[in-house]
């Protein structure tokens, strides 16, 4: 029988990350089904105040310590492990985000708890849990059973509604004493995103290109369509990594989160890391040569076509329609 569920709350620069509320919502549902308390742990400076927004938890453990701001993953894993040993928590939720990446894996390697990564759904099944994980770029789902209900669950951002993890009540908090060992990894400073380029988060129309655009020259075809539509060009990671567009145009996990009225995705398969950054677009139109591309599972409109062939035709038609 489960004892409690622990959420590793995530904060960056004094702000609670959305993933924290997503995990609290997901955790609340399991806690209710199992009849156990939902607890959270929040680390870093100013967290005594920040903890008040985590009212979806029955209790929040707080280590208000500046040494824990952007602490090395092993340091955070150690704090969580100590807490798990103390409270007997048998389910730990950790975000599959860039900030938290690696913490769950270290915890799994150091404890007897298995980790289920990339989780998008959690169901209570008898005394155990069944977690649904998204693998192979979103092309395969796997149901994993934690028969004894013990494990670390890596929660994929955007899989659970934020609203269900928000609450107006102020949760009881308990300060935990953490002695931070000197680490071989030390945070020095933030590097702000470059400014001066088009702000893709403010565009009504985005023309996004992915691997299917094939060459740097073809990016110009997308640029022409964006101009005709009065929007801007953005891209998924492979295009940015090739240096075909600047970092400021990246949409997805490390890049921007965008919500335009129309998101046109050309040659983008729809891997989870990209989907995370554009899923809330009002209208998604996807063009890809692969009819099985995951992007079609979430897009509103789609066409199985070669982006490079379709782009110039579409640009002409848009110009004609606009007159």
């Amino acid at each position: 029988m489960a004892k409690s569920i622990l959420v590793l709350a995530e904060q960056l620069r004094g702000g609670i990350s959305d993933i924290t509320y997503e995990m609290l919502g997901a955790g609340r549902a399991i806690a209710q089904a199992l009849g156990v308390p939902l607890e959270a742990v929040l680390l870093g400076s100013g967290t005594s105040q920040l903890a008040s927004s985590l009212g979806a938890a029955d209790k929040v453990f707080v280590a208000d310590n500046p040494e824990l701001d952007l602490a090395a993953p092993e340091t955070v894993a150690e704090v969580v492990k100590t807490l798990v040993d103390k409270t007997g928590a048998d389910i730990v939720l950790v975000g599959c985000t860039n900030v938290s990446l690696g913490i769950g894996s270290i915890l799994a390697a150091r404890s007897q708890m298995p980790l289920v990564n990339f989780c998008r759904a959690i169901k209570v099944d008898g005394g155990g849990l069944v977690c649904t994980s998204q693998l192979f770029g979103g092309k395969i789902l796997s149901d994993v059973k934690l028969a004894d209900g013990r494990g670390i669950i890596g929660v994929y951002p955007g899989a659970f509604p934020i609203e269900q993890g928000r609450s107006d009540r102020t949760p009881p908090t308990e300060a935990i004493d953490v002695s931070v060992q000197p680490s071989k990894i030390r945070f020095k400073q933030y590097i702000e995103p470059a400014s001066g380029d088009v702000d893709i988060t403010k565009q009504h129309v985005l023309v996004a290109v992915g691997r299917g655009i094939q060459t740097q020259d073809n990016v110009q075809l997308a640029e022409e369509l964006a101009q005709a539509l009065g929007g801007a060009v953005c891209a998924s990671r492979p295009v940015i990594d090739q240096g075909w567009l600047p970092l400021t145009r990246q949409v997805g996990k490390s890049g921007m989160t965008v919500k335009p009225r129309v998101y046109l995705a050309f040659g983008i398969s729809g891997a989870p890391e990209h989907w995370e950054g554009m899923q809330n677009s009002q209208c998604i139109i996807a063009v890809n040569t692969d009819p099985k591309a995951p992007i079609f599972d979430g897009a509103h409109y789609g066409a199985v076509a070669d982006a490079v062939e379709l782009l110039p035709i579409l640009t002409e038609k848009v110009k004609m329609r606009k007159g």
Binding site: L70, V99, I185, F187, K188, I191, K253
Partner: peptide
């Protein structure tokens, strides 16, 4: 290290 929204952090690693 990359965070989100184009924000990065600089770290010293031994």
């Amino acid at each position: 290290k990359e965070f989100a929204g184009g924000l990065r952090g600089e770290f010293e690693v031994e």
